[in-house]
């Protein structure tokens, strides 16, 4: 049974962001990423999953339960780290965690302690005195300590310095999947794709409120290739092949970006007179850039 099953989701609210018929399925134990430009509809999709915005049409099923009819049960199994976490300013770090724990029967105090130490968060510090990085660290501590089956992260590391970003990711890897990794699912929306490259099992490209591509990360990296050929004289200026981006020519070198057609591209370059041909897989960020430009 899928942990997340969204079918033909439509959300109209405000004007800046909206979702137009997005579908998304995530199986248990998977880490699924939403990639997309600003305003593509990623945050609205996550908010619809959390019941924070009204769904115009379509269905949202989490843990096999309809979100609207079983909101309390669904919410007890998930946790969320927003891009700009807010806390009651009069609370200390300790108060904020105790408050969050009061709603969560499965609260893990050992996980909480481990993360507080790892992040060097002072339990006595007022939440109003925390930096942006520390607020995110506190939000993650709170989310993971609740021992959710599904952890939803919305642009969790944007605006943080590189060291804090790295610590954040390492903490997610080290603590979230600790118990029952087969049942711990992660949904992350990010534009810092490189950072999450190794963690992401599969991803959905979101553009203008729609899912335009859903693919396994390993499959994507195995399919997309950048093939370069070097010629004796000037490289040919065009190719009969279907390429994902227009061929780039630099003097003696011609570069083709292809999906699954690597062998054909190599063969064509060789037959066109290339003396040396090299191929390289595209990283997820490069795949995103290629797909987003289309």
């Amino acid at each position: 049974m899928a942990i997340i099953d969204v079918q033909k989701l439509h959300v109209s609210y405000g004007r800046a962001e909206a979702v137009h018929g997005l579908s998304l399925t995530v199986e248990p134990g998977r880490c699924h990423a939403l990639f997309g430009r600003n305003g593509a509809g990623k945050t609205t999709t996550l908010k619809a999953l959390l019941g924070l915005v009204p769904v115009t049409s379509g269905s949202v099923t989490l843990f096999g339960l309809d979100l609207l009819r079983h909101e309390r049960e669904v919410k007890s199994k998930l946790a969320y780290v927003p891009d700009a976490p807010g806390f009651y300013p009069w609370m200390t770090v300790r108060d904020a965690l105790d408050y969050a724990a009061s709603f969560r029967p499965g609260w893990k105090t050992d996980v909480e302690q481990h993360l507080l130490e790892r992040f060097e968060l002072d339990p006595k510090a007022p939440t109003s005195s925390l930096s942006k990085g520390q607020r995110t660290q506190l939000a993650l501590t709170s989310a993971v300590s609740a021992d959710p089956e599904l952890l939803i992260l919305d642009e969790p590391t944007s605006g943080l310095d590189p060291l804090v970003r790295r610590q954040f990711l390492e903490a997610v890897i080290s603590t979230f999947q600790d118990r029952d990794p087969q049942k711990k699912s992660l949904l992350v929306s990010t534009h810092l794709i490189t950072e999450f490259e190794g963690v992401v099992d599969e991803f959905t490209l979101v553009d203008r409120g729609r899912d335009v591509l859903t693919i396994e990360a390993d499959t994507a990296r195995a399919s997309y290739r950048r093939i370069r050929g070097w010629f004796e004289g000037d490289a040919p200026s065009s190719t009969p092949l279907t390429t994902l981006t227009p061929p780039t020519r630099e003097g003696r070198m011609l570069e083709l970006v292809v999906d699954r057609e690597a062998d054909a591209a190599r063969a064509w370059l060789t037959s066109a007179g290339a003396q040396r041909v090299e191929a390289e897989a595209l990283s997820l960020e490069e795949i995103f850039l290629v797909a987003a430009a289309r």
Binding site: R166, I173, S174, Q177, D178, P181, Q182, G198, V199, D201
Partner: peptide, 16 residues
């Protein structure tokens, strides 16, 4: 599994 996953910053299921 946990230490190597954290070191390489990859999914634990991948190392497992």
């Amino acid at each position: 599994v946990r230490a190597l996953a954290e070191q390489l910053r990859v999914n634990r299921n991948t190392i497992a």
